[in-house]
Measured scan of single mutants.
Amino acid sequence: IRCIGVSNRDFVEGMSGGTWVDVVLEHGGCVTVMAQDKPTVDIELVTTTVSNMAEVRSYCYEASISDMASDSRCPTQGEAYLDKQSDTQYVCKRTLVDRGWGNGCGLFGKGSLVTCAKFTCSKKMTGKSIQPENLEYRIMLSVHGSQHSGMIVNDTGYETDENRAKVEVTPNSPRAEATLGGFGSLGLDCEPRTGLDFSDLYYLTMNNKHWLVHKEWFHDIPLPWHAGADTGTPHWNNKEALVEFKDAHAKRQTVVVLGSQEGAVHTALAGALEAEMDGAKGKLFSGHLKCRLKMDKLRLKGVSYSLCTAAFTFTKVPAETLHGTVTVEVQYAGTDGPCKIPVQMAVDMQTLTPVGRLITANPVITESTENSKMMLELDPPFGDSYIVIGVGDKKITHHWHRSGSTIGKAFEATVRGAKRMAVLGDTAWDFGSVGGVFNSLGKGIHQIFGAAFKSLFGGMSWFSQILIGTLLVWLGLNTKNGSISLTCLALGGVMIFLSTAVSA
């Protein structure tokens, strides 16, 4: 259960009878995928790494000078000259100064003066180019299975845990398959586009800190620079940016070097996208990844198990997540596992009318040892309800109150669905055939309105939902006002479609 501690969480529900669903994975976010007769899966884009970055340009932001020398000439005696002028490691300046009897010249006039100092770069920052084909995306998957609280967001041991898996995709191999043991396998067909235009970005490294910066900004930095990788004795261009020549006297000129420019660069980098280094690879934390999940090989585990009949206890007080759902960790005293956990939410304890829904599909106890633990997640209705676990006299209950409203949740879900469709863009549509167009249209309606429909009408039977949709269509056909007619027709059509397409 990876997503319960992530604030940016998206719930995606598969269409009834569908074998695939489109998701948008982004750094700092987590996606929970639910479908009829399929286990619930949490998917998170953990890291995006980039390798084989080529150094484009380096800037010196802290330097020192040494070996200063000057040469001067009297008027009419030609130009002052130093051998160091031809050495690229030196920074030199030529000027004219007033000369006369007082400073060793027989004539009054302008004399030539040249001053040089050896330039040494102490600290530099480097910009590297990123090729999209060198990106690698690491995705962690977790099935809502027989897990306890100690396994949440624990990325170790996934090789031997059938509840978890790690997959890596690249532009050259965008397809992967996550093996989930008894739950089958989940196929991923990803489109490795981060949403960032790397043709316009460089990877900047300064003092063990890293950013993504725009090329134009990078090339306009007014500091000494050299092109390409460091060859040991780089040729620094624009050395004068960190060196200041003071007022010249008759035979000498003082040279000083400016202080470190790291603070000024940090100020200019305010708002830039931060990154990290992992050995020789860069780690990015921006952008998104679009994936199509193929769920035809994914299956529920323990459908044929019998119900657990022994007593359950709450190991922890049920807690609310950031998303309005409830996490419950229970301990089973029996030894008759594997068995299914009898769990439901009810409005009252007399009729036990089921409300809400299970995020953890078909929760089971897989071990036959005593005191096995299991964590599950529920989506309670707004208002008061009861969490009921167990059967008969051994069942345990917990009162729950959820604040908020169904309308607010439906609106929030619609906005999130619209954002998801905007990110998917043209990849969500198939114009290759008439059937493809209608299929894409259905998927689009489901992406945007599916979660809201589930919130508003999830407790009704599909037949009642179709009746309401048919009534809206009838009202649309018999209303003389054009805008009201079109609105009723659209709402009725969407409702009829979703009542037959969205899983219960």
Results as ranks from 00 to 15, higher is better:
Y203R: 03
G187E: 09
T231R: 09
G390K: 07
I484E: 11
V31A: 11
L298M: 13
E240V: 14
P224A: 06
E367Y: 01
Q131V: 03
L491P: 07
S70E: 05
P171C: 06
V6S: 00
V343N: 02
I389W: 12
D71T: 05
T194H: 12
S112M: 06
G127P: 00
K443M: 15
G459C: 05
A272N: 14
A451C: 08
D296S: 14
A270K: 13
F285G: 14
D22M: 10
R416L: 03
V153I: 14
T160H: 15
G492I: 06
C190R: 09
D197T: 04
F453C: 11
H210K: 02
T267C: 06
F431H: 03
N362M: 12
T254A: 11
V391N: 10
D83Q: 13
K454V: 13
D384R: 02
F457I: 12
P171D: 05
Q131A: 12
P224F: 09
S146A: 01
M15W: 15
K373I: 12
H235D: 02
V494C: 09
V437C: 09
D200H: 05
S112G: 11
A264G: 06
Q131D: 03
K124W: 06
L378Q: 03
K454N: 07
P380A: 02
I407A: 04
A176M: 10
K124D: 02
L307W: 14
L486N: 03
V265S: 10
N237L: 01
G408R: 08
Y203Q: 10
V24H: 07
V347L: 14
T406F: 14
M295D: 11
S149I: 13
N481W: 12
M125L: 14
V328A: 08
A361S: 02
S464G: 08
S461C: 09
D10F: 02
H27W: 07
Y137H: 12
G356H: 06
E13K: 09
L289C: 04
A54P: 03
V265T: 14
Q85P: 00
H144K: 09
H401G: 01
G493D: 06
V167N: 05
I152L: 04
H398C: 01
K246M: 09
V473Q: 03
T487W: 11
G181C: 04
V391P: 00
T179P: 00
K239S: 01
V257H: 09
V143A: 12
D426F: 12
D336P: 13
G404S: 06
E79H: 09
G28N: 07
P380I: 13
L201P: 01
E329K: 04
L322R: 03
G337I: 13
K316C: 12
W462Q: 10
L352I: 05
K84D: 03
K93R: 06
I407R: 01
G111Q: 04
N238Y: 09
K281E: 08
G417V: 05
L212F: 05
R175Y: 11
D10E: 07
R402C: 11
G432M: 11
A428W: 07
F314R: 00
N134Q: 07
T48L: 08
F245M: 11
V91N: 11
A422K: 03
L25S: 09
G106W: 06
T233L: 14
S58D: 13
T205P: 00
E136Y: 07
I130N: 07
C3F: 08
G417T: 09
E159A: 13
P171E: 06
V255N: 02
A248P: 14
E44V: 06
I496H: 11
L273R: 11
P224C: 08
L82V: 03
D22N: 09
N208A: 15
F463I: 13
L258C: 10
V330M: 12
V255I: 15
Y90I: 10
L201T: 07
T179H: 10
V303D: 00
L300G: 00
V502C: 05
K395T: 09
K118W: 02
K454C: 11
T267Y: 06
M277T: 14
S306F: 04
N238S: 11
I4E: 10
G195F: 03
N237I: 11
M295S: 07
D161W: 02
R402L: 01
D247G: 10
C308K: 07
